[in-house]
Computed example of a mutant assay.
Amino acid sequence: MNIKNIHIGSLIQSKVDEHQISMERITKFLSREEGDVEKMYHEKSVDTDVLLKWSKLLKFDFFRVYTGHLILYAPHSRFDNSVKQNEKTMVFRKNIYTQEVKDFILEKIRMGKMTPYDVILRYKIPKTTLYKWMKKI
């Protein structure tokens, strides 16, 4: 899976093949013609309503792929997700690291493409978090 350049159609087709879902079931569930479904497999992006239906049918959260992309490639906010409330600042710093993101990063380290230090600098992942991931493999 390529988290940087997402081609959702091919990911959907891969999951359909993996679960061996029949075209008849897909067309009924999506209320689409077979040709429309085949076209979706070649699309780089899909409407969110349709993607939600695919997620339900295939029991896989395709939106997490995009979340993983945001964690790795979106510029970090200088506001750091803070919310002002009665002159106090509540800060929410919890990042959601999906398994796909963890696998992607650990693979880069394992293959020697990046060092742990490079990962910490590039993706702003806390050092302790990264080393916990590395310890588990």
Rank of each mutant, 00 (worst) to 15 (best):
residue 5 N to Q: 11
residue 6 I to K: 05
residue 6 I to R: 02
residue 7 H to T: 02
residue 8 I to F: 02
residue 10 S to T: 07
residue 14 S to F: 11
residue 20 Q to H: 15
residue 20 Q to T: 01
residue 22 S to R: 06
residue 22 S to M: 09
residue 22 S to Q: 08
residue 26 I to Q: 03
residue 29 F to K: 08
residue 31 S to V: 15
residue 32 R to P: 01
residue 33 E to F: 04
residue 35 G to F: 13
residue 37 V to H: 04
residue 40 M to D: 08
residue 41 Y to I: 00
residue 41 Y to C: 10
residue 43 E to C: 11
residue 49 D to I: 11
residue 52 L to R: 04
residue 52 L to Q: 08
residue 53 K to N: 09
residue 53 K to A: 07
residue 54 W to A: 01
residue 57 L to W: 02
residue 57 L to C: 03
residue 58 L to W: 03
residue 60 F to N: 03
residue 62 F to A: 03
residue 63 F to T: 12
residue 63 F to H: 11
residue 64 R to Q: 13
residue 64 R to W: 08
residue 65 V to H: 03
residue 65 V to Y: 04
residue 67 T to E: 07
residue 67 T to I: 05
residue 67 T to G: 08
residue 69 H to K: 10
residue 69 H to N: 11
residue 74 A to Q: 11
residue 77 S to A: 07
residue 79 F to M: 12
residue 96 I to P: 09
residue 96 I to C: 12
residue 97 Y to M: 00
residue 100 E to L: 07
residue 101 V to G: 00
residue 104 F to T: 02
residue 108 K to A: 05
residue 109 I to V: 02
residue 110 R to K: 15
residue 113 K to E: 15
residue 115 T to Q: 06
residue 116 P to N: 02
residue 118 D to I: 10
residue 120 I to T: 10
residue 120 I to V: 14
residue 122 R to L: 12
residue 122 R to V: 11
residue 123 Y to D: 09
residue 123 Y to F: 11
residue 125 I to K: 00
residue 126 P to F: 05
residue 129 T to Y: 06
residue 130 L to W: 02
residue 133 W to T: 00
residue 136 K to C: 11
residue 137 I to V: 15
